[in-house]
Amino acid sequence: MPFSRIYYLYFSPHKAYVRKLKNILGFVPGNLNLYKLAFRHKSVAKNIKDGAKNSNERLEFLGDAVLGSVVAELLFKLYPYRDEGFLTELRSKIVSRANLNQLSRKLGFNEFIEYDARMISYPNKQSSLLGDAFEAVVGAVYVDRGYRFTKEFLLTRIIKPHVDIHMLEVTETNFKSRLIEWCQHYGKEVQFVHIDNAPDESAKLFTVEVRVAGEVCGLGRDFNKKSAEKLAAEEACGFLKVFDTEDIAR
């Protein structure tokens, strides 16, 4: 084991933190600051230059791309005779915000996340912290150890023990349709509102709010308009407990 990792594990002032993180990840970080950054939400981040903050958003962006690549390759090999539509839908289920939130909580990432509770008042926004942190950690592992290590980490430490791909294959997760049906059943108006991006954000990034009876219940952001709507609907379903309600109704 390199000296830097031995230092972090046994001699660093942060050794308790490192040991706890090692129990979750299965390895000792090579650059501890990366992982601390991965758990830092923008609500507690400081401005560093030109409005940019030392939050986990950049690592989240990177981790999202790496995770999508690893899952896409896995599904490509696992289902050699299924078409692109099937593979895309199944990948969406695995990397969905709801699934990543669940994985993040199961792994114990919620104990590491830094955020300002006063600035995050909606429960759906609080839950999205988990999935965001999960992707940021994947980004941190990639920067720290490289793609090959990150791929092995995701496959053996995360997906194999915690993701039932075949169960997800037969699980319906059309969040937008379910949300609209739920709102119709309970007589509530639902709106998908497209929000203009901030001046410093990419014009290609779509931001969508879901408003149910005038209340913001979900937010989705993606470089694809339909994907942004699906993410927003997914958050809204979680916030409104749409699937829990349907299970009880059955």
Rank of each mutant, 00 (worst) to 15 (best):
R91K: 15
V216H: 13
F175I: 08
V18Q: 00
V208D: 08
Y142L: 13
L103I: 05
G139V: 11
Y147T: 10
I158P: 05
G63H: 05
G238I: 09
F239H: 15
R91Y: 12
A133E: 04
L103D: 14
L103H: 14
E57A: 12
A213T: 11
D83I: 03
L21T: 07
A133R: 02
Y115N: 07
A65Q: 15
R221Q: 03
H41E: 05
M119E: 11
T150E: 07
V193W: 10
R105V: 06
K93T: 02
D116H: 07
F134D: 08
R97W: 13
K36I: 08
V210D: 01
Y10E: 00
N197R: 02
W182I: 00
L87D: 07
R118T: 12
V242T: 06
K77W: 11
T150W: 11
V212Q: 00
N47T: 15
R211K: 11
K36Y: 13
L21D: 00
F243A: 11
A228Q: 07
E73N: 15
E235G: 06
S202M: 10
L107Q: 04
L37I: 10
S128C: 15
L87Y: 12
R221T: 09
S69C: 09
L37E: 06
N56A: 08
Y122V: 12
S69E: 13
E172K: 15
V242L: 04
V212K: 00
L205A: 13
E234R: 02
A228K: 07
V66R: 09
K22F: 10
D83P: 01
D200S: 09
L231P: 06
H194F: 11
L21V: 06
F134K: 01
A38W: 02
N124P: 15
T156I: 14
N110V: 04
I165Q: 01
K151L: 03
V163P: 03
A236P: 07
V190Y: 00
F192W: 02
F243C: 02
